[in-house]
């Protein structure tokens, strides 16, 4: 098992590499100095206090929440229908249609952004948060579909048939059997889409017009050295929020699998 030990050392080193930048966030968020550099000068919470009174940032936060929630709901609705279609029904052109819907996963985001900006400008629709939502739904739907497909796949078809056989209508079957069993998948899809939307920069940057989302706001702050400690403390709050959302999503995904009677594969449902 010597090979195993070397691999373990390597893997732990790799984890340090992955985490190094992220771990700096909380460290410098509480550092007294106005420059983000070593040595640390002292403990402070003043950057967080500054955030508390940064009204532009608050607006950006609200914008992001609006975009994130709208995106999460829309892409989960699309994702639920599409995942159901692809797991339950067989029809001509299904593969092609699904492939097309999943395309944004492998398309550079700049292409999506450029394409949307061109068409919106041509159609005379002004750039706005709504435009950002349109773009985000496009890139989040594939993730929703992936998560919900796994939820629907784990759902035994005979459960729904049993419900029909026991006298329920297709409509009531959906609410008594299907929905309770895929609900955790739906929650997980909502959380993941929301998180992706909250972090997305390039599409928002192209489409947002005058109302910045949080990443666009952060981008505008990065140019000023004096603003960096503030950005770092904001970043650590976002990190915390993302973590909570991600863990919640994972929790619900596992519950979905457990409910449907299968064990989670532990690879994250979005693979």
């Amino acid at each position: 098992m010597r090979q195993g030990r070397w691999l373990k050392v390597y893997s732990l080193t790799y984890l340090v590499f992955i985490y190094a930048p992220v771990l700096l966030l909380p460290i410098f968020a509480f550092n007294d100095s106005a420059i983000v550099a070593f040595p640390l000068t002292g403990f402070t919470t003043k950057w967080f206090e500054e955030l508390w009174s940064a009204t532009v940032m608050h607006e950006a936060l609200w914008n992001s929440l609006y975009v994130g929630i709208a995106t999460a709901v829309l892409s989960t609705v699309f994702g639920t229908c599409a995942a159901r279609a692809s797991t339950r029904f067989d029809f001509r052109g299904k593969k092609a249609a699904m492939g097309f819907i999943m395309l944004p996963l492998v398309l550079p985001e700049i292409i999506v952004a450029v394409a949307l900006v061109v068409v919106l400008v041509q159609m005379g629709i002004s750039l706005s948060l709504f435009a950002v939502v349109l773009g985000h739904v496009l890139i989040c739907t594939p993730f929703s579909i992936a998560i919900l497909s796994s939820a629907f796949n784990n759902l035994d078809l005979s459960l729904e048939e049993a419900s029909l056989d026991l006298g329920e209508t297709p409509f009531s079957t959906f609410f008594r059997v299907t929905l309770p069993l895929v609900a955790p998948g739906i929650v997980s899809s909502l959380l993941i889409s929301f998180t992706i939307s909250l972090d997305e920069f390039i599409i928002a940057f192209f489409l947002t017009g005058t109302d910045p989302t949080l990443p666009v706001y952060i981008w505008s702050q990065l140019r000023f050295t004096a603003k960096l400690p503030g950005v770092v403390s904001l970043g650590s709050l976002l990190l915390l929020a993302s973590l909570i959302l991600l863990l919640a999503a994972e929790y619900f995904r596992r519950r979905a699998n457990k409910k449907a009677g299968t064990e989670g594969d532990g690879t994250g449902g979005f693979l």
Partner: peptide, 17 residues
């Protein structure tokens, strides 16, 4: 199925988990 006087025991049993 929901309007027929038949009921079924499924191969997988289809017990609602």
């Amino acid at each position: 199925a929901n309007h027929r006087p038949t009921n079924m025991v499924f191969q997988s049993y289809a017990i609602f988990p």
